[in-house]
Design a protein around this nucleic acid. Structure first.
Lengths: 148, 148
DNA sequence: ATAAATGCAAAGGGTTTGCAAAGGC
DNA sequence: GCCTTTGCAAACCCTTTGCATTTAT
């Protein structure tokens, strides 16, 4: 309930508010995710934690991600790679993705037109829009130059 | 090379053109997929085949799907369900998806604005657009009524 | 006859689950 | 102390692969 500063604090508050244990593992996973500037996979999170000396089991990483998703502080993405990626919901009210089919780089951007049109389209078909996802695939400048 | 009528015929021609065997299993999988009006999963295809009395192994379904994808007559979709879905490329030049978060129903539609904007957005960031995917999630009328 | 496809079962990758031990509350 | 989380390994789901056998050409 308290108005804390960091996102990790918001997570611990969220846990406390519902009487859930604030464990070192949960905090560690949250830190990695909130400090990251990329979409992280569960495996990458586990690797990063090991690199920092925190030994967190794979199952715990997944279970903590479930909790983080439930808190609404983290969102998941599926780019069709065969696994999910996660990112802080902080910097991301609603944004689209542009993915390079050469190097896999992901760029994010916002566009009001897309949001407005998505809402219109849903409504015109009797749907209440909840969210949408636009992913544009293409080749970035460097990949085009390298012809890789 | 011949100008055949059905999509299945186009598939068998495609196979013959490159000296690949036209097997009963391949034709059966193609038939199911081309007759379907929905996005089918590999499992659903196998189930349908069993229902029809054609016993086709899972591995063969997947291998045939690879061939069909290569022929360009079938496209695959990933709606983040943890598995892929397949559909005939026939009726689908470029379209978007509207998915009900209640019942999972999938509606398809086209919108020129989306396509134009996607192209613009990619180019403005130095990308050559190859394709895009827009999925809008929401609740359809009946699910809203049922509050399910 | 030859080269490719099939079927089965085992392997594979990402994710989940069961259960005893550990740890917040 | 009670109840939840952790860790480990086994289980799971979808998909791929190895290999002996069948089949299209």
């Amino acid at each position: 309930m308290a108005a804390d500063d960091t996102v990790v604090d918001r997570f611990t508050s969220w846990l406390r508010d519902r009487g859930l244990p604030v464990t070192a593992q949960r905090v560690a996973v949250a830190e990695v995710l909130f400090e990251a500037d990329r979409h992280l996979s569960a495996e990458e999170i586990a690797a990063e934690l090991n690199g920092r000396g925190s030994k967190v089991g794979t199952a715990t990483v997944y279970r903590t991600l479930d909790v983080l998703l439930e808190s609404g502080l983290v969102v998941e993405r599926d780019f069709g790679e065969g696994f999910r990626r996660f990112e802080s919901a902080r910097d991301v009210p609603q944004h689209e993705h542009l993915i390079c089919t050469g190097c896999g780089r992901v760029e994010e951007f916002r566009d009001d037109r897309i949001e407005r049109i998505a809402g219109e389209l849903a409504e015109s078909r009797g749907f209440t829009r909840e969210r949408h996802r636009l992913v544009i695939y293409g080749r970035c400048r460097s990949c085009r130059a390298a012809n890789s």
